[in-house]
């Protein structure tokens, strides 16, 4: 029995490892390609490790376009993604709490409306939304890229959080209420600590999605010096002229760093399982 377990363990781990390679191979390809001279990338596409290593792609890519360096794009993206994420998480948690814990009039309709709003492709909402923002004088600033998110505009997060809050036993709320906690205090002291894994997940998603979003950036940011990374990355290639894939890969790798760092820092909180200790009570 024990021996079989051990073989099973080994097989399982080999499988996980092999699978990890499959998962990550394309990324490694991109990473190594970014160190190949740009004109050899496709000629040597079948070969992972570069024959000649070069950092030229990074130097070229970092220069950006017409005097606006790639660093500016990264800073812009950080400003947008960090503030929008903070706003999304705080507001969505509140709204999710409202949906999960209170029986108010019109809740079902609003909840349905929220779900429906996710089913209409962004492209058809773009023009009316644009007119709105223009009316408010928000165009050509980061406001449309940040402020709506501070009001839980993405139903996904509201639904995600309300779902997780729904999974927290109500007995805890009741107990706290008896202890004299207000609803606000219940939210801050009981619910929030218990939903840390969900908050962490949400933060990772939100940051990543804001980081990748170029559709709204396209509409609302005109000046090149205000472009976010997602937009800038698309500027390396053009179907009509030769594209600098080397620089594009290099900068694509650089632009992955913030998301990876965020993931590494935050995924720690997925392990600690704070919720378990809370639930025992």
């Amino acid at each position: 029995m024990k021996k079989r377990n051990k073989t099973g363990f080994v097989i399982k781990n080999i499988f996980i490892f092999a699978f990890a390679i499959v998962m990550i191979y394309p990324l490694l390809w991109m990473l190594f390609s970014s160190f190949k001279p740009t004109n050899t990338i496709f000629a040597t596409a079948g070969q992972l490790i570069p024959t000649t290593w070069t950092t030229e792609n990074y130097i070229n890519g970092w220069k950006g376009f017409g005097g606006v360096g790639f660093g500016t794009f990264i800073t812009n993206s950080l400003i947008i993604a960090l503030s929008a994420t903070l706003g999304t998480i705080v507001s969505s948690a509140l709204v999710g709490y409202g949906f999960a814990r209170f029986e108010f009039k019109g809740k079902r309709i609003l909840f349905t409306a929220m779900l429906l709003s996710m089913m209409l492709p962004a492209q058809v909402l773009m023009i009316p939304q644009y007119l709105w923002y223009k009316q408010l004088g928000w165009v050509n600033s980061y406001i449309p890229l940040i402020v709506p998110y501070c009001f839980a505009i993405q139903g996904f997060f509201v639904y995600l959080f309300s779902n997780f809050i729904g999974g927290i036993p109500k007995d805890l709320d009741e107990a706290a209420k008896i202890d004299g906690c207000s609803y606000w205090q219940i939210f801050v002291r009981i619910i929030l600590p218990l939903m840390v894994p969900a908050l962490v997940t949400g933060t990772i998603f939100s940051f990543m999605w804001r980081w990748d979003d170029f559709l709204s950036a396209l509409m609302y940011v005109n000046k090149s010096a205000m472009y976010p990374v997602s937009l800038a990355l698309k500027l390396f290639s053009d179907p009509g002229t030769s594209s600098d894939y080397g620089a594009m890969f290099a900068m694509a790798c650089v632009s992955l760093i913030p998301s990876v760092v965020l993931f590494l820092t935050f995924q720690r909180y997925l392990v600690e399982g704070i919720s378990t200790s809370g639930l025992k009570g």
């Binding site: 507001s91 509140l94 209170f102 009001f151 505009i153």
Partner: peptide
């Protein structure tokens, strides 16, 4: 309470 918590979302929505 419900509308207090979903308020911010509702306006924007």
């Amino acid at each position: 309470l419900g509308y207090f918590f979903i308020g911010p979302w509702l306006i924007m929505f």
